[in-house]
C-alpha cells in the first residue's frame, strides 16, 4: 500500500545499537516513523520467537541490532544471537514471511549515521515487498 507507514519492531542492544539510534535521533537524521524500538540488554536476549511473535502480532518488519562481533558487553551474546538469527532468517521463506522483512545487524554506539542508513534501506526494502505482492 503506497503511503502506508510500515510497522517495524526493532530489538536493540542497550550497549550499542540503542545508543546509536539515540545518536541518530539527536542529530535529527531522517528516520521512518513506523519504527518501534524495544531496548534489550543484549542481542543475545533476542529469542527467535520474539521475532516471530512480532510478525504474528502484525509487524511488517523486524530488525535486530547488537554490538559488532568481538565487542559484546557480555563477551559472547551477539555470537549466540548471530547463530540463532541466521537460522531464523533462512527459515522465513518456508514460514511464509519474505526474508526482506527481517534483518539483523551490528551497530555501535557511535554509528548514528550507519543506523539511520540501515533503517532507511530496510524500510525501503519492505515497501518494495509490500508493493510487489
Amino acid at each position: 500500500m503506497p503511503g502506508k507507514d510500515v510497522k517495524i519492531v526493532g530489538f536493540l542492544c542497550n550497549w550499542c545499537a540503542y545508543a546509536g539510534a539515540d545518536m541518530a535521533g539527536m542529530a535529527r537524521m531522517e528516520q521512518p516513523a513506523g519504527m518501534r524500538i524495544i531496548r534489550v540488554p543484549c542481542s543475545g536476549r533476542v529469542d527467535p520467537l520474539l521475532v516471530l511473535k512480532a510478525f504474528q502480532e502484525g509487524a511488517d518488519g523486524v530488525l535486530v541490532s547488537g554490538c559488532h562481533p568481538g565487542d559484546c558487553h557480555y563477551g559472547s551474546g551477539n555470537y549466540l544471537a548471530r547463530r540463532r538469527l541466521e537460522l531464523l532468517g533462512r527459515m522465513l521463506p518456508a514460514l511464509g514471511i519474505e526474508p526482506e522483512r527481517f534483518h539483523y545487524t551490528w551497530v555501535s554506539a557511535s554509528e548514528g549515521a550507519r543506523w539511520a542508513e540501515i533503517v532507511n534501506t530496510f524500510t525501503e526494502a519492505i515497501k518494495d515487498v509490500d508493493e510487489g505482492s
Binding site: 522465513l92 521463506p93 518456508a94 514460514l95 511464509g96 514471511i97 519474505e98 505482492s133
Partner: peptide, 9 residues
C-alpha cells in the same frame, strides 16, 4: 511463492 505459503499455513 512466499505469500502463498503464508496463506497455506
Amino acid at each position: 511463492t512466499v505469500a502463498e505459503r503464508r496463506q497455506f499455513w
